[in-house]
Amino acid sequence: MKALVLTLVSILIAVAVLGPLAIGPAGLELNLAHDLQSGYGENGFDVFTWLVYGARVSLMIACICTVISLSVGVIYGAISGYVGGLVDIILMRFVDILLAFPGILLALYIAAILKPGILNLVVALCATGWVGYARVARSQVLAVKNQDYVTAALALGASHARILGRHILPNIWGPLFVQASFGVSSLILAEASLSFLGLGVPPGTPSWGALLDQGVTYLFVAPHLVIWPGVCIAVAVLSFNFLGDWLRDVRDPV
């Protein structure tokens, strides 16, 4: 399990980071002579190159969004859990509102009212992505805030900020990391979905989801445009899910 997970994830990261450097962007240039030929996509770009660059776009967006969502979520959730009382109730009622929108619906709505572009895509995904982290962080804070070392620190006159930063946060990272690796996989999926729907990356940007969209249009004449990006997305999603499973098992062996 461990070997498989680490291999898959490192291959993905290697492809995303080094792949574009290794093969160069020549295959992304349009070459009308190859339009929709086997191995080539619309306007004759090279599908392999596109997939490699797509890995970079996909992982980059997923990682950036995870970092932002995680930071926002942890701060929000930790404050809510630590302060408690009315503040907690108000903050959590707001989270309830965001949870009223199923799946990527809210991200889709935000992407629709912003212009298509990578930055706006990140905004749309982060706007909804932090909620899960906030909930986990809050429950973790609730679990540790009444433990002896915290009350001791408080008795010694440590400030709230210091307690949160030095005593509580270091002790709640575990579950958040597990959550984050699942989060990367769901962000890969969300980015691909939005790009597939034409609400993600701008036209011409290499993205797995956007390639699948082409594949559906040219289903009869170029089915390879569906198969390969689909396999890439499935493998990437699966890898980070495995990573999450493995991290959870490591932390909490049954």
Partner: peptide
């Protein structure tokens, strides 16, 4: 929004 026309626009 037609894909085919969009691809020509990319050219």
């Amino acid at each position: 929004t037609d894909r085919f026309r969009q691809s020509i626009a990319l050219v």
